[in-house]
Design a binder for these strands. Structure first.
Lengths: 344, 344
DNA sequence: CTCCAATTTTACAACGTTGCATCCCAGTAT
DNA sequence: ATACTGGGATGCAACGTTGTAAAATTGGAG
């Protein structure tokens, strides 16, 4: 059985409260007493019981991160960033996978388990703007992603429109004018797909290039296979284009694969850019140009906002924060035989 | 402030212990009483305080998963599997990233935070056989991976030797006889690299093919860039081979990339097989043949063993369990223009 | 109508910690 | 010599829950 404050107190010959004072760096403890207590702590290998501390103090030192699925590379890297950011503040992260399941997304916010943590960072995939009023829980929430705006919670997101516009401009600046899109969502306006498509259209409009729905490929999901299927679809329709904007990296990689199979050279015949800056895009063939959406910054900001809310739950209205982005030009748009970048 | 048992009791007009009895499905509660209590619970939106329950009961309903890093695809998929398996048993998962840092691996086992969970599933990357005695904590541990055997903890691992042997035999059965290895670790005997290399050698020996160190490329880490560098190395040495066994998928993908750049056709000139069955191997060009090491089974088994230990900490000696594996032949060894497999 | 046994409800004490209030003591001011 | 000050240590209560044991209620048998 693990040692408690009482055990330490007995060994040190003081009251258990004094031991507690030592542990919490209470100011009024004589040096000699402190030393004696610390000796006893070491001798017994005492470790504070965090559950008891949580019960008493009302906070746990953990936060929950709810996301669709870790096997999707974007979310794995997001989780990595969030865990690192949380660790910097001494917080530990509990992960809930919601799948593509609306019920589980709602459940996460309602579950009593959530109270085992002090706050929730929530990246929904099924809930949308119409569910804005369902976004609430017994702990503060920081919302991630592009599906829900103007909720009662803080919200951290990437600059989808501006970044997509910049990605498109990157292709335009290389002299490409027929830019196909892979991964649009039929009828979507908000959400990553809708916003990125809007950025694409803005970039075209700024150069007076008409929007052509004939070179926009729609998909349901954003897996690599969908990118491949979409590109097959474009080719089958006989669409002509000299560049492709994959609305995320996975789609772009699927598209590149099909282009290469069909005999197109990337980037010579078709330049391709993705979105997300997944780690693996540095190693594909060719390396994939992409948009770094500021994942690290998103994680840091989410943690910071969440900690502020935890300290002070009703301090001011919900905040919306956008992270900085950056175009990452690689071989799939600018070519070159740069050796694979070594990162370790 | 959230409602407590006492609040519910006051509303229902019973003692707070009766409310507790209702919640815990105690047998002796009159139906009428139960109904009244449940009504009060609903009216107040009462949710049990899990922290208090944990303190009282001594267990938390959470487990810790310690792994190097989620941005490494293998570990992301492992985490996915573990979380799913845990969820089936009503357990929630807390993730600790240890990086490639020996200190943090030790810290995870020593940290008081570990007590916020009931057990630890631990996949070390730096600790090795010489540290076997350091594998202990205040909660039961299930060890994953190939770095430490015969510890005092239960251990779940893949059949590295047999699986690597099967992978090699797959290449041999296709008529390839000069099989290069990418990703060996200098001097390693235990550990994934050592064991998989042993399987490779066993397969060669069974066919009386001499082992040739000239077509074995050594690396330090198992990132894609290392696979690429290793293949560069092999080509620079003028090594001749008609197949490659990448000791994991990421290495294999790096190797494929360099082979293609160098003008080799995969699999016509060089057949390539990897190891891990990462999701992404289904979508690379060509799709990558690999070994499915039974990740789902590993996760399920780890959870099962851990739960048994949590219930009964000193029931019998530590157990070693090996998961079943399976060769997954894809285009990189058997060719073919199968369309990309759609999985959703 | 009383008594016993079974069923239902309650009271109390933990789990290990921290906040608050108190108490003790030495040193200093009156 | 007495009162005051403040550092240093302590005791008690509380956080919200569950296990144990005891009390209250009920129903049926005598």
């Amino acid at each position: 059985m693990a040692a408690t404050l009482h055990d330490v107190a007995r060994v040190a010959g003081v009251s258990f409260k004094t031991v507690s004072n030592v542990i919490n760096n209470h100011p009024h403890v004589r040096d000699s007493t402190r030393a004696r207590v610390e000796e006893a702590i070491a001798a017994l290998g005492y470790r504070p019981n965090l559950t008891a501390r949580s019960l008493r103090s009302g906070h746990t030192g953990a936060i929950t991160l709810a996301l669709p699925q870790l096997s999707l590379p974007y979310f794995a890297e997001l989780a990595d960033s969030v865990i690192e950011a949380a660790a910097k503040h001494g917080l530990v992260v509990l992960i809930e996978q919601t799948g593509a399941d609306r019920g589980r997304e709602l459940e996460v916010m309602a579950s009593p388990r959530l109270k085992m943590s002090d706050g929730l960072i929530f990246s929904p995939l099924e809930l949308g703007q119409e569910d804005v009023d369902l976004i609430k829980a017994e702990v503060p929430i920081v919302l991630l992603g592009e599906r829900i705006f103007n909720s009662q919670s803080d919200h951290v997101t990437m600059q989808n429109v501006a970044a997509a516009r910049a990605a498109t401009e990157h292709l335009l600046s290389l002299g490409r004018t027929r830019i196909a899109v892979v991964g649009a969502h039929q009828g979507e306006v908000i959400g990553s797909a809708g916003l990125r498509l809007r950025g694409y259209r803005e970039a075209l409009a700024a150069r007076n290039i008409p929007y052509d729905d004939g070179i926009v490929a729609y998909v349901r999901d954003w897996h690599r296979s969908n990118g491949a299927a979409a590109m097959h679809d474009l080719l089958d329709r006989g669409a002509t284009f000299d560049a492709v904007f994959g609305l995320n990296d996975t789609l772009a990689q699927g598209a590149v694969r099909v282009l290469q199979e069909a005999g197109f050279r990337v980037p010579d015949d078709v330049a391709v850019i993705g979105f997300d800056d997944l780690d693996e895009t540095r190693y594909s063939l060719p390396t994939l140009s992409t948009v770094d959406p500021g994942r690290g910054e998103i994680a840091e900001t989410a943690i910071r906002l969440l900690m502020e809310r935890i300290k002070n739950p009703d301090a001011g209205p919900p905040r919306e924060v956008e992270s900085a982005f950056r175009i990452v030009p690689r071989e799939s748009t600018v070519g070159g035989q740069a050796p694979p970048r070594v990162r370790d």
